[in-house]
């Protein structure tokens, strides 16, 4: 009885959710988002690695290309009613596009509403990995970046030159 009484003066562990929000660490695996690169271009290049890594096969997408050769997903769908928030997709992503963020507030009364399309997933932020721009490293020429303009690239070879 006395012990119980003492506990009344202790700091409370229980928080008054939802009035008070839980504090989540930045690496907490919650809602999945698609991020943008520093130039605000879509980071996702539609490589299908997240979909292949997904153990419950809840990601599907279709890659397409803009007129300058930059790839992006035509549609990108995650069925969150199947997602187990394992983070494999984030691990597989070669462009830091898909990220799990510290947010779990996505409960729905209707299961159909848990199917997120690209418009629901894409955010205007770089997420946890600021500064990375896949196309600055890749050898592919896209609009605004020609051959030889990526990091660590020489200018294109002049194949008609005879200079050794």
């Amino acid at each position: 009885m006395w012990l119980t009484f003492l506990h009344m003066f202790r700091k409370r562990v229980t928080i008054q959710y939802p009035e008070e929000k839980a504090k989540l660490p930045p690496r907490w695996r919650g809602r999945i988002v698609l991020t943008r690169d520093p130039d605000m271009g879509e980071r996702c290049v539609g490589c299908y690695l997240c979909a292949a890594a997904c153990p419950v096969d809840c990601i599907s997408l279709q890659a397409t290309e803009d007129e300058n050769g930059r790839r992006y997903p035509e549609f990108f769908r995650i069925n969150f009613s199947r997602c187990i928030f394992c983070g494999f997709c984030e691990e597989a992503c070669p462009t830091y596009a898909i990220q799990l963020i510290p947010d779990f507030e996505m409960a729905e009364y209707n299961r159909q509403n848990l199917v997120y399309e690209k418009k629901d997933l894409l955010i205007d932020s770089q997420g946890k990995y600021p500064g990375y721009n896949y196309y600055k490293v890749a050898g592919l020429a896209i609009g605004g970046k020609d051959k030889g303009q990526a990091e660590n690239e020489d200018v294109p070879v002049d194949i008609r030159s005879l200079v050794p």
Binding site: C58, S81, R82, V115
Partner: peptide, 12 residues
Amino acid sequence: SGRTSQQANINV
């Protein structure tokens, strides 16, 4: 891949 998501836009 995508077995549980391909047609989720039509029906979950």
